[in-house]
């Protein structure tokens, strides 16, 4: 099958992660990965983003198949259960709101901006080699927080890629779960 432009979006995903090491402001671009799938699912009522435009999914697929980094085993049943998927979505949303709240605290001068990327919501990695004096501190606080989320989800995706099938992340990806939920609501009553 002839490759199309959207088959190369994995390059953008890889670049995104790399650029965050040099300029944390690139983290803001990650908002596109949040907003585009939601807009598509609300407006079009489908998961075209997951199906065609998700660079991260493509990246896992390439690493798992071409680079043979995946064991290609079946994912455990509980990881694909509705309870886990919606539970992980809820957890992810709580962490996202917490990140927004931290940004607000910096915005209102209650807290100082921290040049830290938090991995897996636990491990605080100093990120003080990037420049943070061009914009307001809250802009950088959001960037650090958002990059933490993106890096954390990539690490989780890489772990499950190695352990199970390349695109195992897609099974419990919060955006995928959310957009599928939106599609279910939008097509409620439609005959499948």
């Amino acid at each position: 099958m002839k490759k199309q432009w959207n088959d190369y979006l994995y390059i953008i995903s890889a670049l995104y992660l790399i650029l965050g090491f040099f300029n944390i402001m690139f983290a803001w671009l990650g908002l596109l990965c949040f907003s585009i799938p939601i807009i598509i699912s609300i407006v079009k009522g489908n998961k075209a983003y997951c199906n065609k435009y998700c660079g991260r999914g493509q990246l896992f697929q390439i690493l798992g198949t071409k680079f043979k980094l995946s064991r290609n085993k079946d994912i455990p049943k509980f990881l694909r259960s509705k309870w886990f998927r919606y539970g992980f979505l809820a957890f992810f949303m709580i962490m996202f709101i917490n990140m927004l709240f931290n940004t607000y605290l910096v915005f209102s001068n209650v807290k100082d901006m921290k040049e830290v990327v938090t991995l897996l919501w636990t491990f605080k990695l100093p990120w003080n080699w990037v420049s943070t004096d061009m914009f307001s501190p809250w802009v950088y606080q959001f960037a650090f927080g958002f990059y933490s989320i993106m890096l954390t989800s990539t690490v989780l995706g890489l772990i499950t890629m190695v352990l199970f099938k390349p695109r195992s992340w897609c099974v419990y990806c919060p955006m995928g779960t959310m957009t599928q939920g939106i599609c279910r609501i939008k097509h409620r009553g439609d005959e499948f």
């Binding site: 998961k47 075209a48 997951c50 199906n51 999914g57 897609c170 957009t179 599609c183």
Partner: peptide
Amino acid sequence: DECVACGTCMKVCPKSAISINNGIKAK
């Protein structure tokens, strides 16, 4: 019914026999 509608199957199908129906499930 546990399909997550990710579309991975759609891309590898040599006969283009798979579509993702309404973003809910592969058909």
